[in-house]
Design a protein around this nucleic acid. Structure first.
Lengths: 121, 121
DNA sequence: GCCTTGTTTCGACGTCTGTCGATATCCAGA
DNA sequence: TCTGGATATCGACAGACGTCGAAACAAGGC
């Protein structure tokens, strides 16, 4: 009985259903759960993407313009490519405002992942 | 100044230095930190590996024989390959006992990752 | 309408990754 | 010492991935 199904993973922004104690260490993940969660971990599994994610997460207001974070040592198209990956993985959302595009971290993501690995959320 | 350098990442089993509040969202990761952490996330970024990791973590005693966890839908060499990846990423350790090989989760890993993403550890 | 700046998409390239079957290694019993 | 079960390594292959430059798209200012 996977209580992960009730976790606010990716698209399901469920209410307040939260795990209590590192579900990942309480019982084996089911194949479907692993499938969905691995998407997130994989997205964070590239150094450039991890930095971009961290830059967005730590930027004031919880969101960042692409222009603010594109200095990570790769070309600008590559940055865009990585941001798209993060978006496809459900970790961030993007919004165009005038000339610029802003990325922000999906609120539930941090709680989901840290709740999955950690003791308390 | 990246306080992640003091985190017990992979090989550094430092004493009790622990982050307070989602470092990943407090300040941008440095490139070297991102490099090291991405290795862990990447290792968890495959569904089969994530399940194996979860199976080891949730197994009684905190360790599992390969024979206990190799039923994940892929061939035995593939399981061995994935376990090696998890080991190389510093997430698990292995130990041969007689005929069997046991894997266990590196203790600091859960705290490191959940502390990185979460509020409290 | 036409530039200019910011961002995404496209096409291509080399490398990495997950998977397998076959084979090798390790160890406990007989 | 031989045999059999448990894991690991090897070699190969298809597909995914990260990267780039070039080109396309979007929006604002002239």
């Amino acid at each position: 009985m996977s209580n992960l199904r009730e976790l606010p993973i990716v698209e399901t922004a469920a209410a307040g259903v939260v795990p209590c104690c590192a579900p990942l260490a309480r019982e084996p993940l089911t194949a479907p759960d692993a499938e969905r969660l691995a998407v997130m971990f994989k997205a964070l599994g590239d150094p450039v993407r991890l930095r971009l994610f961290s830059m967005v997460a730590s930027h004031e207001g919880g969101e960042a313009c692409v222009c603010d974070i594109q200095d990570v040592g790769v070309s600008q198209p590559t940055v865009s490519h990585h941001l798209k990956k993060l978006r496809d993985a459900g970790l961030v959302t993007s919004e165009r405002r005038g000339t610029w595009v802003f990325y922000k971290v999906v609120p539930e993501v941090m709680a989901t992942l840290s709740g999955l690995l950690g003791q308390k959320v």
